[in-house]
Every structure is written in structure tokens, then in C-alpha cells.
Design a protein around this nucleic acid. Structure first.
Lengths: 358, 358
DNA sequence: ATGAAGTGGGAAAGCGCATTCCCATTGCAT
DNA sequence: ATGCAATGGGAATGCGCTTTCCCACTTCAT
């Protein structure tokens, strides 16, 4: 037994499919109340559920919003996903998920898949990479997105505008002031710290990571401090762990010169990994080293010692990206090519210089 | 400018739409290589992307798999989502996301929405509730799912079979031995513990929570210990926190009778909340109380003190649910109504009775 | 040389719905 | 009473694709 169709409902109600369509799925024209009731009853007894695919075909809109993330299990992305999901819900849409592990080629494929499904809009989160090896893929990604826009799609971008993308009004980017906030963090940290600064960053070319590193360096410089050394690693917990091991060895070898290293990890998850590594080497935070992260991941807030970080309204970011790229076109002016959020530096115990009582 | 269509491609290639369809999207019949090449070229120059909605309509399959979770930002669910996503990818499908906050009414709506989109299968994660107030909604949820199955849909269920659902072969449930594992945890904990056991559980009627509580009690009983008190709270971090505050007050009032409470929180996130509460009251783990969780959430593994818990292969669970409900029907026998996973008790510092050196 | 079997492309009929147009009916003003 | 606009339902078309069926042509066996 297959699902019942509109015409079956119409037949049962003794009306035409057109009328049934009008009453069941919103239309400008509203049939007479008595007829409407009959149709609704028929639909009910048949357990009618409109075929969204057919509707999409007929209306050229799908009610779908595509979401591209690196890894849905990464708390950074899942927080954004929650925001996107909330926005989708508000608009009566559904979200389609794609994970890409950050590779531009997969992102391109995801965009194509979304385009195939005629997603009304696409939200692309997660920093793109500008590594030389990814150059072609990036160009193709931009091309694919442009094509999608040209065909009427809207795309919401978290963080930076897409490199190479050029369609005039198809993109809505949610600016995240990674650089400024990282600078601010550096300034605030430098106030009460005397040890050397070290940065644990993602791979070179990872935009978000690069922004944060650049900002942090600028902050140091603004505070009259020398540039910090940068250790490159993967942009996840394991990357942080590995970098942490390196640092631990150096700390134990006395390379921190009598003072504590102040470590800045480009995101919270890396910071946690680094802390785990330091601990596994018998070092303690903040006794033997200070450390700060970025993002203020919710699940990590109960971590000990509490992690100094930059709090970002991730859910809101997701919401804005989804809303900004919604098809409320006929744009209220041009006001909507960008929206921006702000974050706040949150100093916590992991960077406290006065040795804690406990 | 709107996306180009199959017939445009066909025209450009000088063939019929039928032929174009055959070469571009897999078919049993394969046109001549030379023609195929021409079609492919035409598709390429036009930037043709098949309209999945139209394909879905024509083929009566959508290539979509619906995923229902309480909250995508909850690490438990996002881990499962990752598994589902992986399975979807293997099968060349996409996942459609719905979040419900655990309310049966929303779950019902999500199922209906998936049915409307003609999702090939639905994975429903997250414990259903059997609270009296939800009874009707639950019945409706079951009815909706049954209807979906009757129309040819497959549903993968994480944890328990759907209460009230009855369609013979539409459901594939991934059994999670919550009860057994909780019992095992209780037994292992009781070995080295003398204090009273206390359970922090979710609201009554929450299936997963109830299973774990029941199992834990059984384990205690098997070990010859009296039944533990159960504190009911919300099934998330805040719930754990609130329960933790209550317990902290009692511990400080000396109600633990000279020994330490051994707290079992029905999931890791609650456990973390409880730990945070105890800490905020100046208590320390495991010095002042022991605590164990359930799930072994990845992001929480670096937590201090390391949390005793039950490790569950969440990603695998998601995979199995998605795969098991995939339309490889013509079922290899009936072998596939269930699949099961197993977990392991992981004893860590949070329940160590020998007072730690540090 | 002839027919049967096989090969490969095209025409056409939907898939389930929205929507445009058309037509019958009604209400009103004249 | 007559004409007009407004109202509301139905027929038909098309959204973009798959798939069945048909037909022209080739190839082989006889």
C-alpha cells in the first residue's frame, strides 16, 4: 500500500484535485468553509500526507536548507547546527546535513548535492582552507556556489566570505571577529603574564585558525611584546594533544626560562587536548603553564581548571547564517549582505598567575 | 536564469531525453559510448545538475534518510548523528535532521515531515518518554510511524522498540543493553565502596533513564546491597547540577554517615553537572563523594577527575540504525530486525576509593 | 537470401502536485 | 429584467525526470 495522493482525497471528498490542493496546502484562494471541511475530513480518513517532492517540483522550492560542517560531532559545529536548526524550524523548513571534514572537494560535492535537491539556501560553516594543495578545489567550490546562487540560491557563510566567490547578492556572511577577539585576548593576557607566549594553531591556510593567530600576534605586539612562536598541528583535540606533548617536553627541559609558558590554542578543543598532554606529562595548569582557548564550547565549561577563552555565540551565529540566507529577498535594501556577532574574552583559572589556593 | 534541465542537455547533445537520462543517471541500459560521451559533454557545458526532486518523484525514492534527535548539540546525539551521517554517505544518501527536545508530539511531526519528503528511512534516536501526560502523543507517534512503515518506509530505532508500534517488518532496533550495563557498573562499583548509593536519574518515564536506573538497582541487589535512593531531575547538565546541589547540601549536613555517597548519574552530561554542583559547594571528587556516569562522551574524556562511566559505541549505534533501516529489503531472512551493540564499564578516578595522591 | 533474435534509440505516459485559465453561478446596480 | 463584476470550482498544463513500450536497424543462423 502506497501513500494516498491528493486526487484520491479529492475524489473521496467529491471535489477536484485543484480544490483539494487549495484547501490542504495554503493557497491564495480559499474554498468555501463547508467544502474545505469535507476535504479535510477526506484527507484525514485517508491519512493523506502531501508529497513534498511533488510540491517542490511544482513550486520550484523545496523548503530545505542545506548545512555544511566539518564534523557534526565537533561541539563547535553542533552548536552552530543547533542554531541553524532553530532558524529552520521558525521558517517551517528542514535542514539537510552534509559533513566534509573540511576538504574543499567534499564541500563542493555537498553544494552540488544541495543544488540537486533544490535547497532554498545553504549554510556553510567551518573554515575553508587556502592551502596551496586545495587551490583548485577551492576554485571549484567557489564556482559551484556561484552557480548555485545564479540559479537563485542563497548561501549563508560563517566566518569569512568565500574566496573567489563573486555572485553579487547571493551570499550572506556572518562576520566573526576572530582576529579582533584574539588580539583582545592577547592584550588581556599580557597584562598579568611574564612568560613567553606560544601559539598552538591549526594547519597553515586554515582561515579561522590563521585569523586567530594573526590577531593574537597583533595583540601581543600592541602590548609591546615579541611575536609568539607558532606550533602548527591539526585543528582538533588530537592536534592539541600532540602540540601539548612537544611543549611539555620543553617545559620539563627548562626551556620556559623560569617563567611559565602562556599557551594560546586556536580553539577550545585543541586547548583541552594540550592540557591533557601536559597533564599526562605530570604538569599542571596553571602551575606549570597557562593556557587559553577560543570558542567557549558549552560542554567544556565545567572543565577543570576553567579554561580562559573567547566566548562566541555559536548558536546565534548559526541562526543568523540561516536567517540571513533565507529567501526573504526583495531585500530590504542591501542591508543584509552581512551580519555580525561579537564575542567576549573570558578570563578563567587556566591563565591565573597568582597561584591558586587549591 | 534557472538551472538547466535534462531535455536541454538532450537537445544540445542531439539525443532524446530518455537517452540523456540513461547516460547521466544510472540505468540498466547503457547507450553507446560515443553517444554517452556527447551527452556528458553537453551536460558539462550546461552545468547540468539533476533535479533530485523530480528524480524522487519519478522513482518514488528520495535518497533521504531522516534523523530524529532531541538536541543536535548534545554530545550524545551528535555522536550518533555522526554515525548516521557516515552510513548515509556510504549509501550515497543525505541526512535530513529534526530536533524534538524529546517531546513525542514533535517527534510525531518530524516523522510526518519525513514521510512527506518521502525519506527512504528514518532513524529515531533518543529515549521516548512514557509519562502519562505523553500517552496520547506516544500513541500518535506510534501510529505515524506505523503508517510510514505501511507506506514502505523503514525505521531504525536506537535503544528500544517503539511502544505501541506494530508494523511487522519496518522497524530495525539497535538494542543497547542499558540495563545490563548499568547492573554491571553497580556490581563493579559495589566491590570497593561502602558508602550509600544514590542515583540521579532523568524524569520518570524516560525509557533510557529508567532502564539504567533499574539495571543499577538490580546490580546493587545482586551485590547484596540495599536499593539506592533515586533523585529525579532533568536528563541534561542542568538536571545533574540541580541534583548535585541537593546532594551537596546533604553531604555537608553529614547525611552521608561518615562514608562517601557513591552517585550514579544516568548519563555523563548529568554527571558532569552534578560534579560542577558539588564543586561549587566546595566538595571534591572523589574525596567527598564518588560519581559515575553513563555514555562515555568523547568530549568529556579529558575531564578531571576522569569519570567512571559505561562506554557506548555511539557512532556505531548510529551507523547500525541507519544501515539496518536501509532499503536492502528482500531481507536476507529475518536476520535484520535487531542488531545489538555492547558497552564496557570503565572505572576511572571519579570512583576511586583509595584517596588519590594529588 | 531470409527470418529470428538482439541491439539501441525515441515517443509517450506518468510520478503528485500547483496553478493558470476558463466557465458557471451568484449578487448587485441600473 | 438586464448587464456587469465578483466569486468559486474544475479542466488542463507543466514542473523535470524515469521507464515502459515500441520501432528501426544490425547481426547471426539457417
Amino acid at each position: 500500500m502506497t501513500a494516498s495522493t491528493l486526487s484520491e482525497v479529492a475524489k473521496l471528498a467529491g471535489v477536484s484535485p485543484a480544490t483539494a490542493s487549495r484547501v490542504l496546502n495554503g493557497s491564495a484562494r480559499t474554498p468555501a468553509p463547508e467544502i474545505a471541511e469535507r476535504v479535510r475530513q477526506a484527507a484525514d480518513t485517508l491519512g493523506y500526507i502531501a508529497n513534498a517532492q511533488a510540491q517542490g517540483l511544482a513550486k520550484a522550492r523545496s523548503g530545505l536548507i542545506g548545512l555544511i560542517v566539518h564534523d557534526i560531532a565537533d561541539p563547535y559545529f553542533s552548536a552552530i547546527a543547533r542554531g541553524v536548526q532553530a532558524a529552520a524550524r521558525e521558517q517551517g523548513k528542514m535542514v539537510l546535513l552534509a559533513t566534509t571534514e573540511g576538504t574543499p572537494a567534499d564541500e563542493r560535492a555537498a553544494v552540488a548535492a544541495f543544488a540537486a535537491r533544490r535547497a532554498d539556501s545553504i549554510v556553510i560553516a567551518g573554515s575553508r582552507s587556502t592551502q596551496p594543495g586545495d587551490k583548485d578545489s577551492n576554485t571549484e567550490l567557489a564556482a559551484e556556489l556561484d552557480r548555485y546562487c545564479r540559479n537563485g540560491g542563497k548561501v549563508g557563510v560563517v566566518g569569512h566570505s568565500i574566496v573567489g566567490a563573486s555572485h553579487p547578492d547571493g551570499y550572506h556572511v556572518v562576520d566573526v571577529p576572530n582576529e579582533e577577539l584574539a588580539a583582545k585576548l592577547a592584550v588581556e593576557l599580557s597584562a598579568g603574564t611574564q612568560g613567553d607566549f606560544v601559539i598552538i594553531g591549526g594547519p597553515e591556510g586554515r582561515l579561522t585558525s590563521d585569523d586567530r593567530i594573526r590577531g593574537f600576534q597583533r595583540g601581543l605586539s600592541d602590548a609591546g611584546l615579541p611575536e609568539a612562536e607558532v606550533i602548527r598541528s591539526r585543528f582538533n583535540r588530537e592536534g592539541g594533544y600532540e602540540a601539548g606533548l612537544q611543549l611539555a617536553a620543553r617545559i620539563k627541559a627548562g626551556q620556559s626560562g623560569g617563567t611559565r609558558f602562556c599557551i594560546f590554542a586556536a580553539n577550545d578543543v585543541m586547548a583541552i587536548g594540550a592540557v591533557a598532554a601536559l597533564r599526562s606529562e605530570g604538569l599542571r595548569i596553571p602551575r606549570d603553564a597557562l593556557i587559553a582557548g577560543f570558542d567557549d564550547i558549552e560542554t567544556l565549561r565545567d572543565f577543570r581548571p576553567p579554561l580562559t577563552t573567547v566566548s562566541l555565540p555559536l548558536e546565534e551565529i548559526g541562526r543568523l547564517a540561516a536567517l540571513g540566507s533565507s529567501n526573504d529577498r526583495d531585500g530590504s535594501e542591501d542591508a543584509s549582505a552581512h551580519s555580525s556577532v561579537t564575542g567576549t574574552v573570558v578570563l578563567r583559572r587556566s591563565t591565573e598567575t597568582a597561584s591558586a589556593p587549591g
